[in-house]
Design a protein around this nucleic acid. Structure first.
Lengths: 196, 196
DNA sequence: CAGAAAAGAGACAGATCTGTCTACATGCTT
DNA sequence: AAGCATGTAGACAGATCTGTCTCTTTTCTG
Protein backbone atom coordinates (compact mmCIF):
# COMPACT_ATOMS: atom_id res chain seq x y z
CA UNK A 1 0.00 0.00 0.00
CA UNK A 2 1.77 3.09 -1.25
CA UNK A 3 0.35 6.58 -0.97
CA UNK A 4 1.61 9.06 -3.51
CA UNK A 5 0.84 12.60 -4.55
CA UNK A 6 -1.58 11.17 -7.09
CA UNK A 7 -3.65 9.80 -4.26
CA UNK A 8 -3.59 13.23 -2.70
CA UNK A 9 -4.87 14.64 -5.98
CA UNK A 10 -7.73 12.14 -5.97
CA UNK A 11 -8.68 9.45 -8.46
CA UNK A 12 -9.44 10.17 -12.10
CA UNK A 13 -12.88 9.96 -13.69
CA UNK A 14 -15.18 7.56 -11.83
CA UNK A 15 -17.49 5.89 -14.33
CA UNK A 16 -19.51 3.58 -12.12
CA UNK A 17 -19.08 4.60 -8.52
CA UNK A 18 -22.08 5.53 -6.43
CA UNK A 19 -23.42 9.05 -6.72
CA UNK A 20 -22.06 10.29 -3.41
CA UNK A 21 -18.51 9.26 -4.26
CA UNK A 22 -18.65 10.85 -7.69
CA UNK A 23 -19.96 14.11 -6.25
CA UNK A 24 -17.39 14.21 -3.49
CA UNK A 25 -14.47 13.40 -5.76
CA UNK A 26 -15.60 16.00 -8.26
CA UNK A 27 -15.97 18.60 -5.52
CA UNK A 28 -12.58 17.56 -4.20
CA UNK A 29 -10.94 18.59 -7.43
CA UNK A 30 -13.01 21.66 -8.24
CA UNK A 31 -12.96 23.12 -4.75
CA UNK A 32 -9.20 22.82 -4.53
CA UNK A 33 -8.54 24.05 -8.04
CA UNK A 34 -10.96 26.96 -8.28
CA UNK A 35 -11.93 27.71 -4.70
CA UNK A 36 -15.07 27.17 -2.66
CA UNK A 37 -17.16 30.13 -3.73
CA UNK A 38 -16.10 29.96 -7.35
CA UNK A 39 -17.34 26.40 -7.65
CA UNK A 40 -21.10 26.21 -8.01
CA UNK A 41 -23.34 23.28 -7.19
CA UNK A 42 -24.58 23.19 -10.76
CA UNK A 43 -21.08 22.68 -12.08
CA UNK A 44 -20.36 19.88 -9.65
CA UNK A 45 -23.63 18.22 -10.61
CA UNK A 46 -22.89 18.57 -14.30
CA UNK A 47 -19.29 17.31 -14.12
CA UNK A 48 -20.02 14.45 -11.76
CA UNK A 49 -22.89 13.26 -13.95
CA UNK A 50 -25.33 13.07 -11.09
CA UNK A 51 -28.95 14.17 -10.81
CA UNK A 52 -29.68 17.18 -8.68
CA UNK A 53 -31.99 15.23 -6.43
CA UNK A 54 -29.26 12.66 -5.84
CA UNK A 55 -26.86 15.39 -4.89
CA UNK A 56 -29.17 16.91 -2.33
CA UNK A 57 -30.01 13.49 -0.93
CA UNK A 58 -26.39 13.04 0.14
CA UNK A 59 -25.47 16.64 0.88
CA UNK A 60 -28.37 18.70 2.22
CA UNK A 61 -26.51 21.98 1.65
CA UNK A 62 -23.41 23.17 -0.13
CA UNK A 63 -21.80 23.75 3.23
CA UNK A 64 -22.18 20.06 4.03
CA UNK A 65 -20.28 19.24 0.84
CA UNK A 66 -17.59 21.78 1.69
CA UNK A 67 -17.19 20.18 5.11
CA UNK A 68 -17.00 16.71 3.59
CA UNK A 69 -14.40 17.98 1.13
CA UNK A 70 -12.25 19.44 3.89
CA UNK A 71 -12.56 16.26 5.94
CA UNK A 72 -11.46 14.16 3.00
CA UNK A 73 -8.66 16.50 2.13
CA UNK A 74 -7.42 16.38 5.71
CA UNK A 75 -7.44 12.60 5.80
CA UNK A 76 -5.67 12.27 2.46
CA UNK A 77 -3.08 14.92 3.22
CA UNK A 78 -2.14 13.46 6.56
CA UNK A 79 -2.03 9.99 5.07
CA UNK A 80 0.15 11.20 2.24
CA UNK A 81 2.52 12.85 4.70
CA UNK A 82 2.84 9.74 6.86
CA UNK A 83 3.35 7.54 3.86
CA UNK A 84 5.89 9.87 2.32
CA UNK A 85 7.92 9.91 5.53
CA UNK A 86 7.39 6.31 6.55
CA UNK A 87 10.96 5.40 5.57
CA UNK A 88 12.42 7.58 8.29
CA UNK A 89 14.15 5.36 10.87
CA UNK A 90 13.41 7.67 13.80
CA UNK A 91 11.70 10.89 14.77
CA UNK A 92 14.76 12.99 14.13
CA UNK A 93 15.05 11.70 10.57
CA UNK A 94 11.31 12.18 10.17
CA UNK A 95 11.65 15.86 11.01
CA UNK A 96 14.70 16.27 8.83
CA UNK A 97 12.89 14.74 5.86
CA UNK A 98 9.87 17.04 6.15
CA UNK A 99 11.19 19.84 3.92
CA UNK A 100 11.90 17.45 1.06
CA UNK A 101 8.43 16.00 1.31
CA UNK A 102 6.87 19.44 1.23
CA UNK A 103 9.03 20.44 -1.69
CA UNK A 104 7.72 17.45 -3.60
CA UNK A 105 4.19 18.56 -2.83
CA UNK A 106 4.92 22.10 -3.99
CA UNK A 107 6.14 20.72 -7.32
CA UNK A 108 3.18 18.45 -7.90
CA UNK A 109 1.10 19.43 -10.93
CA UNK A 110 -1.97 21.36 -9.90
CA UNK A 111 -0.47 22.49 -6.61
CA UNK A 112 -2.37 25.54 -5.45
CA UNK A 113 -1.42 25.96 -1.83
CA UNK A 114 -3.01 24.56 1.28
CA UNK A 115 -6.72 23.84 0.99
CA UNK A 116 -7.22 24.92 4.58
CA UNK A 117 -5.34 28.19 4.36
CA UNK A 118 -7.20 28.95 1.15
CA UNK A 119 -10.53 27.96 2.63
CA UNK A 120 -9.90 30.04 5.69
CA UNK A 121 -8.86 33.02 3.60
CA UNK A 122 -11.97 32.73 1.48
CA UNK A 123 -14.43 32.30 4.31
CA UNK A 124 -13.83 35.68 5.90
CA UNK A 125 -15.82 35.56 9.11
CA UNK A 126 -16.70 32.11 10.54
CA UNK A 127 -14.36 29.86 8.56
CA UNK A 128 -15.08 26.11 8.54
CA UNK A 129 -13.81 24.49 11.73
CA UNK A 130 -11.74 21.97 9.79
CA UNK A 131 -9.44 24.70 8.47
CA UNK A 132 -7.99 25.27 11.94
CA UNK A 133 -8.45 21.66 13.08
CA UNK A 134 -6.20 20.47 10.27
CA UNK A 135 -3.44 22.83 11.35
CA UNK A 136 -3.77 21.77 14.97
CA UNK A 137 -3.49 18.12 14.08
CA UNK A 138 -0.44 18.81 11.96
CA UNK A 139 1.06 20.81 14.81
CA UNK A 140 0.32 17.96 17.21
CA UNK A 141 1.95 15.45 14.89
CA UNK A 142 5.07 17.56 14.58
CA UNK A 143 5.21 18.19 18.30
CA UNK A 144 4.93 14.45 18.86
CA UNK A 145 7.94 13.88 16.62
CA UNK A 146 9.85 16.61 18.44
CA UNK A 147 9.15 14.97 21.77
CA UNK A 148 10.21 11.62 20.40
CA UNK A 149 13.37 13.19 19.05
CA UNK A 150 14.23 14.43 22.53
CA UNK A 151 13.77 18.14 21.98
CA UNK A 152 13.86 20.11 25.20
CA UNK A 153 10.85 22.27 24.34
CA UNK A 154 8.92 20.25 21.77
CA UNK A 155 6.02 22.72 21.75
CA UNK A 156 8.27 25.62 20.84
CA UNK A 157 10.19 23.65 18.25
CA UNK A 158 6.95 22.47 16.67
CA UNK A 159 5.61 26.02 16.57
CA UNK A 160 8.78 27.21 14.90
CA UNK A 161 8.68 24.45 12.31
CA UNK A 162 5.00 25.04 11.62
CA UNK A 163 5.64 28.74 11.08
CA UNK A 164 8.24 27.86 8.47
CA UNK A 165 5.94 25.33 6.83
CA UNK A 166 3.08 27.81 6.51
CA UNK A 167 5.43 30.38 5.11
CA UNK A 168 6.82 27.91 2.59
CA UNK A 169 3.35 26.89 1.45
CA UNK A 170 2.39 30.50 0.81
CA UNK A 171 5.67 31.29 -0.91
CA UNK A 172 5.40 28.22 -3.12
CA UNK A 173 1.82 29.08 -4.01
CA UNK A 174 2.60 32.67 -4.98
CA UNK A 175 6.11 32.43 -6.41
CA UNK A 176 6.64 28.77 -7.15
CA UNK A 177 8.41 25.89 -5.45
CA UNK A 178 11.88 27.27 -6.11
CA UNK A 179 11.20 30.34 -3.99
CA UNK A 180 10.23 28.19 -1.02
CA UNK A 181 12.73 25.35 -1.12
CA UNK A 182 15.98 26.88 0.11
CA UNK A 183 14.49 29.12 2.82
CA UNK A 184 12.45 26.23 4.16
CA UNK A 185 15.51 23.99 4.28
CA UNK A 186 17.53 26.63 6.09
CA UNK A 187 14.74 27.35 8.55
CA UNK A 188 14.49 23.66 9.44
CA UNK A 189 18.25 23.33 9.70
CA UNK A 190 18.46 26.28 12.07
CA UNK A 191 15.64 25.14 14.30
CA UNK A 192 16.78 21.54 14.48
CA UNK A 193 20.42 22.53 15.02
CA UNK A 194 19.42 24.26 18.24
CA UNK A 195 17.76 21.25 19.76
CA UNK A 196 19.09 17.95 20.99
CA UNK B 1 2.49 63.17 9.35
CA UNK B 2 2.02 60.00 11.37
CA UNK B 3 0.72 56.78 9.87
CA UNK B 4 -0.98 54.39 12.26
CA UNK B 5 -2.88 51.16 12.01
CA UNK B 6 -6.05 53.24 11.81
CA UNK B 7 -4.84 54.69 8.56
CA UNK B 8 -4.21 51.17 7.35
CA UNK B 9 -7.81 50.34 8.27
CA UNK B 10 -9.03 53.29 6.24
CA UNK B 11 -11.07 56.34 7.27
CA UNK B 12 -14.50 56.09 8.88
CA UNK B 13 -17.76 57.09 7.18
CA UNK B 14 -17.24 59.67 4.46
CA UNK B 15 -20.27 61.95 4.34
CA UNK B 16 -19.38 64.37 1.57
CA UNK B 17 -16.48 62.97 -0.40
CA UNK B 18 -16.81 62.41 -4.11
CA UNK B 19 -18.47 59.23 -5.28
CA UNK B 20 -15.30 57.47 -6.35
CA UNK B 21 -13.65 57.92 -2.96
CA UNK B 22 -16.70 56.69 -1.10
CA UNK B 23 -16.94 53.60 -3.29
CA UNK B 24 -13.27 52.80 -3.00
CA UNK B 25 -13.14 53.25 0.77
CA UNK B 26 -16.23 51.15 1.19
CA UNK B 27 -14.81 48.42 -1.01
CA UNK B 28 -11.54 48.70 0.89
CA UNK B 29 -13.27 47.68 4.10
CA UNK B 30 -15.71 45.13 2.72
CA UNK B 31 -13.22 43.36 0.45
CA UNK B 32 -10.74 42.95 3.27
CA UNK B 33 -13.31 41.93 5.86
CA UNK B 34 -15.46 39.55 3.85
CA UNK B 35 -13.38 38.68 0.82
CA UNK B 36 -13.57 39.60 -2.84
CA UNK B 37 -16.19 37.17 -4.05
CA UNK B 38 -18.36 37.46 -0.97
CA UNK B 39 -18.69 41.20 -1.47
CA UNK B 40 -21.19 42.11 -4.16
CA UNK B 41 -21.37 45.29 -6.16
CA UNK B 42 -24.88 45.94 -4.91
CA UNK B 43 -23.72 45.94 -1.31
CA UNK B 44 -20.88 48.33 -2.01
CA UNK B 45 -23.29 50.62 -3.82
CA UNK B 46 -25.79 50.48 -0.97
CA UNK B 47 -23.26 51.06 1.82
CA UNK B 48 -21.33 53.78 0.05
CA UNK B 49 -24.55 55.67 -0.72
CA UNK B 50 -23.76 56.04 -4.39
CA UNK B 51 -25.92 55.59 -7.46
CA UNK B 52 -25.23 52.59 -9.62
CA UNK B 53 -24.50 54.72 -12.65
CA UNK B 54 -21.93 56.68 -10.65
CA UNK B 55 -20.24 53.47 -9.61
CA UNK B 56 -19.92 52.19 -13.14
CA UNK B 57 -18.74 55.57 -14.35
CA UNK B 58 -15.64 55.26 -12.15
CA UNK B 59 -15.15 51.49 -12.23
CA UNK B 60 -16.22 49.86 -15.50
CA UNK B 61 -16.14 46.36 -13.98
CA UNK B 62 -15.88 44.80 -10.57
CA UNK B 63 -12.39 43.65 -11.45
CA UNK B 64 -11.35 47.27 -11.90
CA UNK B 65 -12.55 48.00 -8.39
CA UNK B 66 -10.72 44.96 -7.03
CA UNK B 67 -7.53 46.14 -8.70
CA UNK B 68 -7.97 49.64 -7.29
CA UNK B 69 -8.56 48.16 -3.85
CA UNK B 70 -5.38 46.07 -4.02
CA UNK B 71 -3.38 49.05 -5.24
CA UNK B 72 -4.64 51.18 -2.38
CA UNK B 73 -4.06 48.44 0.14
CA UNK B 74 -0.50 48.01 -1.10
CA UNK B 75 0.24 51.72 -0.84
CA UNK B 76 -1.24 52.01 2.64
CA UNK B 77 0.40 48.89 3.95
CA UNK B 78 3.86 49.83 2.74
CA UNK B 79 3.39 53.36 4.06
CA UNK B 80 2.27 52.01 7.40
CA UNK B 81 5.31 49.75 7.58
CA UNK B 82 7.76 52.54 6.77
CA UNK B 83 6.12 54.89 9.23
CA UNK B 84 6.00 52.28 11.95
CA UNK B 85 9.72 51.57 11.54
CA UNK B 86 10.86 55.11 10.83
CA UNK B 87 12.38 55.43 14.30
CA UNK B 88 14.98 52.77 13.57
CA UNK B 89 18.42 54.39 13.52
CA UNK B 90 19.86 52.01 10.94
CA UNK B 91 19.00 49.08 8.72
CA UNK B 92 19.95 46.52 11.32
CA UNK B 93 17.57 48.06 13.85
CA UNK B 94 14.96 48.31 11.14
CA UNK B 95 15.15 44.57 10.55
CA UNK B 96 15.18 43.81 14.25
CA UNK B 97 12.05 45.90 14.80
CA UNK B 98 10.07 44.19 12.06
CA UNK B 99 8.60 41.40 14.22
CA UNK B 100 7.23 43.87 16.76
CA UNK B 101 5.61 45.91 14.03
CA UNK B 102 3.99 42.81 12.55
CA UNK B 103 2.82 41.71 15.97
CA UNK B 104 1.07 45.05 16.38
CA UNK B 105 -0.62 44.54 13.05
CA UNK B 106 -1.74 41.04 14.03
CA UNK B 107 -3.37 42.46 17.16
CA UNK B 108 -5.16 45.29 15.41
CA UNK B 109 -8.95 44.98 15.58
CA UNK B 110 -10.34 43.55 12.37
CA UNK B 111 -7.07 41.87 11.40
CA UNK B 112 -7.86 39.12 8.94
CA UNK B 113 -4.53 38.23 7.41
CA UNK B 114 -2.80 39.60 4.34
CA UNK B 115 -5.14 41.01 1.71
CA UNK B 116 -2.81 39.72 -1.00
CA UNK B 117 -2.47 36.20 0.31
CA UNK B 118 -6.22 36.07 0.78
CA UNK B 119 -6.88 37.53 -2.64
CA UNK B 120 -4.48 35.09 -4.23
CA UNK B 121 -6.04 32.17 -2.39
CA UNK B 122 -9.50 33.20 -3.49
CA UNK B 123 -8.68 33.84 -7.10
CA UNK B 124 -7.69 30.27 -7.92
CA UNK B 125 -6.31 30.46 -11.44
CA UNK B 126 -5.13 33.86 -12.71
CA UNK B 127 -4.87 35.81 -9.48
CA UNK B 128 -4.64 39.62 -9.70
CA UNK B 129 -1.10 40.69 -10.53
CA UNK B 130 -0.92 42.96 -7.50
CA UNK B 131 -1.06 40.00 -5.13
CA UNK B 132 2.39 38.87 -6.18
CA UNK B 133 3.66 42.38 -6.94
CA UNK B 134 3.04 43.38 -3.34
CA UNK B 135 5.10 40.48 -2.06
CA UNK B 136 7.91 41.23 -4.47
CA UNK B 137 8.08 44.84 -3.36
CA UNK B 138 8.11 43.80 0.25
CA UNK B 139 10.86 41.31 -0.50
CA UNK B 140 12.81 44.02 -2.32
CA UNK B 141 12.43 46.38 0.62
CA UNK B 142 13.68 43.78 3.06
CA UNK B 143 16.55 42.81 0.80
CA UNK B 144 17.52 46.46 0.56
CA UNK B 145 17.65 46.67 4.36
CA UNK B 146 19.72 43.49 4.49
CA UNK B 147 22.20 44.92 2.03
CA UNK B 148 22.37 48.14 3.99
CA UNK B 149 22.93 46.14 7.16
CA UNK B 150 25.92 44.46 5.58
CA UNK B 151 24.54 40.98 5.22
CA UNK B 152 26.77 38.74 3.13
CA UNK B 153 23.90 37.24 1.14
CA UNK B 154 21.11 39.81 1.38
CA UNK B 155 18.91 37.92 -1.07
CA UNK B 156 19.01 34.75 0.99
CA UNK B 157 18.49 36.56 4.25
CA UNK B 158 15.54 38.44 2.81
CA UNK B 159 14.01 35.23 1.50
CA UNK B 160 14.39 33.63 4.91
CA UNK B 161 12.80 36.58 6.68
CA UNK B 162 9.97 36.74 4.18
CA UNK B 163 9.25 33.06 4.69
CA UNK B 164 8.94 33.67 8.41
CA UNK B 165 6.75 36.71 7.84
CA UNK B 166 4.33 34.85 5.59
CA UNK B 167 4.18 32.01 8.07
CA UNK B 168 3.49 34.41 10.92
CA UNK B 169 0.70 36.14 9.01
CA UNK B 170 -1.03 32.84 8.35
CA UNK B 171 -0.55 31.62 11.90
CA UNK B 172 -1.88 34.88 13.32
CA UNK B 173 -4.86 34.76 11.01
CA UNK B 174 -5.80 31.20 11.89
CA UNK B 175 -4.79 30.92 15.54
CA UNK B 176 -4.38 34.47 16.75
CA UNK B 177 -1.47 36.81 17.33
CA UNK B 178 -0.16 34.89 20.33
CA UNK B 179 0.52 31.82 18.21
CA UNK B 180 2.65 33.84 15.80
CA UNK B 181 4.59 36.17 18.07
CA UNK B 182 7.22 33.97 19.70
CA UNK B 183 8.02 31.80 16.66
CA UNK B 184 8.39 34.89 14.51
CA UNK B 185 10.71 36.51 17.03
CA UNK B 186 12.84 33.39 17.24
CA UNK B 187 12.97 32.99 13.47
CA UNK B 188 14.19 36.55 13.05
CA UNK B 189 16.70 36.18 15.86
CA UNK B 190 18.13 33.04 14.31
CA UNK B 191 18.41 34.46 10.81
CA UNK B 192 19.88 37.76 11.91
CA UNK B 193 22.30 36.08 14.31
CA UNK B 194 23.91 34.28 11.41
CA UNK B 195 24.65 37.41 9.42
CA UNK B 196 26.98 40.31 10.06
C1' DC C 1 -41.89 -11.24 -7.19
C1' DA C 2 -43.02 -6.94 -4.61
C1' DG C 3 -41.87 -3.02 -2.29
C1' DA C 4 -38.45 0.26 -1.02
C1' DA C 5 -34.49 2.87 -1.70
C1' DA C 6 -31.54 5.13 -4.81
C1' DA C 7 -30.72 7.41 -9.01
C1' DG C 8 -31.68 10.07 -13.31
C1' DA C 9 -33.75 14.08 -15.82
C1' DG C 10 -35.17 18.38 -15.54
C1' DA C 11 -38.62 22.07 -14.50
C1' DC C 12 -39.17 25.61 -11.20
C1' DA C 13 -38.72 29.21 -7.51
C1' DG C 14 -36.49 32.82 -5.34
C1' DA C 15 -32.49 35.17 -4.50
C1' DT C 16 -28.36 37.43 -6.00
C1' DC C 17 -24.99 39.09 -9.11
C1' DT C 18 -22.98 41.99 -12.77
C1' DG C 19 -23.87 45.31 -15.85
C1' DT C 20 -26.99 48.56 -18.87
C1' DC C 21 -30.30 51.89 -19.39
C1' DT C 22 -33.44 55.92 -18.79
C1' DA C 23 -34.76 60.10 -16.45
C1' DC C 24 -33.69 63.86 -13.78
C1' DA C 25 -30.93 67.21 -10.74
C1' DT C 26 -26.76 69.90 -9.72
C1' DG C 27 -22.85 72.53 -10.49
C1' DC C 28 -18.94 74.11 -13.31
C1' DT C 29 -17.08 76.17 -17.44
C1' DT C 30 -17.13 78.59 -21.62
C1' DA D 1 -27.27 80.96 -21.36
C1' DA D 2 -25.64 76.60 -23.13
C1' DG D 3 -23.11 72.58 -22.71
C1' DC D 4 -21.14 69.07 -20.13
C1' DA D 5 -19.45 66.28 -16.53
C1' DT D 6 -21.05 64.45 -12.34
C1' DG D 7 -24.36 62.90 -9.34
C1' DT D 8 -29.00 60.43 -7.67
C1' DA D 9 -32.70 57.09 -8.21
C1' DG D 10 -34.17 53.03 -9.78
C1' DA D 11 -36.02 49.88 -13.39
C1' DC D 12 -34.39 46.22 -16.14
C1' DA D 13 -31.91 42.29 -18.43
C1' DG D 14 -29.52 38.16 -18.38
C1' DA D 15 -26.89 35.08 -16.01
C1' DT D 16 -25.99 32.25 -12.07
C1' DC D 17 -26.68 30.25 -7.68
C1' DT D 18 -28.86 27.41 -4.05
C1' DG D 19 -32.41 24.58 -3.12
C1' DT D 20 -37.23 22.20 -3.98
C1' DC D 21 -40.23 19.47 -6.47
C1' DT D 22 -42.23 16.01 -9.72
C1' DC D 23 -41.90 12.09 -12.55
C1' DT D 24 -39.70 8.07 -14.26
C1' DT D 25 -36.30 4.32 -14.16
C1' DT D 26 -33.06 1.37 -12.08
C1' DT D 27 -31.41 -1.46 -8.41
C1' DC D 28 -31.30 -3.63 -4.19
C1' DT D 29 -33.62 -6.38 -0.64
C1' DG D 30 -36.94 -9.04 1.82
Amino acid sequence: MFTTLDDLAGPGPLPDQDARTRVLECAYRLFYRHGLRATGIDRIIAESGVAKASFYRHFPTKQALVDAYLDLRHVRWMRWLESRLSAAPDARAWLAALPDALDEWFRAPGFRGCAFINGHAEAGTDAPAMTVTHKRELAARIECACREAGCVRPDEVAADLLLAIEGAIVRAQMEGADAARAPLMRAFARVLAETA
